[in-house]
Design a protein around this nucleic acid. Structure first.
Lengths: 179, 179
DNA sequence: ACTCAAACTGACCGCTCGGTCAGAAGCTGA
DNA sequence: TCAGCTTCTGACCGAGCGGTCAGTTTGAGT
């Protein structure tokens, strides 16, 4: 019998349940029952409930860090297109993680230890706005960032169908006169 | 001493706390403490915790019903503009309620008693898409709906500043070639 | 066969939650 | 003054929560 590492199994199940019922809506007991282990085992592998969530979103967070770093090296002329395509590719690859982050955002994101994430999304918004300080550009960038995330979370279509439509609407909205 | 009706005071305080800490993050005890009454009093005026939330979002829900009814009488040519401006006005008027609805959406919206709300947002999306069945139009509509809501929830700018910027980005994204 | 650390567990803890209930307090019209 | 309602309350309940802990099981290295 191939023995799946318990830790990985916990993450897999927790990911499913968090997505389905939300972070607060999923108890350690629920996860343990689905995994088929005791609640104490969860807390042997992860110090706290939060740590499970952190581990789940870590790959997405790392990808976001990479994207922001990449954008820093792009000139003002091309930054909008790079940000748009980079962000859409990222959120389509980590759809479940994006949903998770938005689920816990209101309560978690304002905690000090999440300040770094705030900086990352600020950088992304600057990219979407073409590094413009105009309120109208900033607001448009926020609309697209939030809107793309919302679609990726709620829409059931697959990435192949979503990607071109998302890129198109973002270009139309953010690169006026170039469509 | 002017005696504020307890029921109204409960709604006012609950609105504040739900906005600040989320629905699940606010307990009946929290509300009662802030109002200055007992927890039992809350449950004298409202049968369940959910009923407080329902009462809070009721005006916004009624406005959404009105908007959707109005859109039904607009022809295909003008429906996009009417939907865009109507939705933006609505969410700017009910910013707190919109935030509340999005806070509880994942767990609440799929319950049967909220099916009607789903129909309303579907009608709104159809309006944003100009009643087109094209996936690209549908997706663009979802992006704008979600994005505008996200801005209204998170952005600190006031309605006067937000409105023209939101209308502009929505028109650019949804009415190509007309900007 | 023995060792020992890693993996795992059942029982338990303190706390908070939404909700109930019998009855007290306040108000109003007769 | 009293009756009868609305309004309000403290005490209580069962359930569920995240988390702890002492101790058992397991499995690889010797």
């Amino acid at each position: 019998m191939v023995r799946i590492r318990t830790r990985d199994e916990i993450l897999r199940v927790a990911g499913e349940l968090f997505t389905r019922y939300g972070f607060k809506g999923t108890s350690l007991h629920d996860i343990a029952a689905e995994v088929g282990c005791s609640k104490a085992t969860l807390l042997y592998h992860f110090a706290h409930k939060d740590a499970i969530l952190l581990a789940l979103v870590e790959p997405a967070r790392q990808s976001l860090i990479d994207l922001v770093a990449r954008l820093a090296g792009v000139d003002d002329k091309g930054v909008r297109v790079a940000a748009i395509e980079g962000f859409i590719d990222l959120v389509l690859r980590y759809r479940r993680e994006v949903a998770l982050i938005y689920d816990v955002t209101p309560q978690f994101l304002q905690e000090p230890r999440f300040a770094a994430v705030r900086e990352l999304t600020d950088a992304l918004r600057a990219g979407f706005a073409g590094r413009s300080a105009e309120p109208a550009d900033q607001i448009a960038a926020e609309v697209l960032l939030g809107g793309i995330a919302a679609v990726v979370i709620d829409d059931k279509r697959d990435a192949v169908e979503l990607r071109p439509a998302l890129v198109a609407v973002a270009r139309r909205a953010l690169l006026p006169g170039k469509d």
